[in-house]
């Protein structure tokens, strides 16, 4: 074991890594936002009590939960142009694929949260004359969201790590930049260690922030 560690190439290419980090954050933020929206829509469809809405939602959720995200990326990026004539940039393709894929998981988190709100809360809202939209927006979702924070964060972390797959579409996120640096420097050990450290710092600081947010939210409820 006399490997000579040399982080020189990593340091010399720091701007590339920072650019990659910025793109990873950009893609993650877009996919999380998209995933939360898609997930809410799927969950509301599934809980609507209308079969023609619920069944397609269940199909989408089960399909994306049971197939690998890499396939979704390839499908959106390579198959859409052929089948639908829609050509997408790697960023857009990755953002769409990851939004829908994570939306399928987020939908289940939403659903669990919504269903966990006690029947009495729904009844109290209805008894005031609220209709379904107001009931969801004012009574059910605010309570459900507080209970969903922890599982949401869990899924969001999973999603941030999944964005590394976008490297396969030549999208210039962190892993892609790392591969570029490796091909120049032939220092894969150092480069991928650096990638791991960057991901760790990113997600660990996010986790600290979310812990603080969660503590504040539960303070508001005072149950």
């Amino acid at each position: 074991m006399d490997y000579q560690w040399d982080f020189g190439p990593v340091l010399r290419n720091l701007p590339l890594f920072l650019e990659g980090l910025a793109q990873t954050v950009r893609l993650s933020a877009t996919a999380i936002a998209g995933g939360l929206a898609v997930g809410l829509a799927l969950a509301l469809m599934r809980l609507s009590g209308r079969r023609w809405l619920a069944w397609p939602a269940v199909a989408v959720i089960e399909f994306f939960r049971s197939t690998p995200p890499l396939v979704h990326l390839f499908w959106v990026f390579y198959a859409l142009p052929i089948l639908a004539g829609i050509s997408l940039t790697p960023f857009l393709a990755a953002a769409i694929a990851l939004s829908v894929q994570s939306g399928a998981f987020f939908a289940e988190v939403y659903r669990a949260g919504i269903v966990s709100v006690e029947r009495g809360q729904w009844e109290a809202g209805r008894a005031l004359g609220m209709r379904r939209g107001a009931l969801m927006r004012r009574i059910v979702l605010p309570q459900a969201l507080r209970r969903m924070v922890a599982p949401f964060v869990e899924r969001a972390f999973e999603l941030v790590k999944t964005t590394a797959l976008a490297a396969t579409l030549s999208y210039g996120e962190l892993l892609y930049q790392a591969m570029v640096v490796v091909s120049r420097s032939f220092r894969p050990l150092e480069v991928y260690t650096a990638v791991a450290v960057i991901f760790f710092v990113l997600l660990f600081s996010a986790s600290l922030v979310m812990r603080w947010v969660e503590a504040r939210l539960s303070r508001g409820e005072r149950r």
Binding site: E118, G120, Q121, A127, G129, R131, R146, E221
Partner: peptide, 24 residues
């Protein structure tokens, strides 16, 4: 219809055994 029931409930108040206040 939900619309009709909501209109009725607006004019008929209900108090529950378990209070059901909105905790948030």
């Amino acid at each position: 219809r939900e619309r009709d029931l909501a209109a009725l409930r607006r004019r008929v108040g209900m108090v529950f055994q378990s209070f059901n206040l909105f905790p948030h």
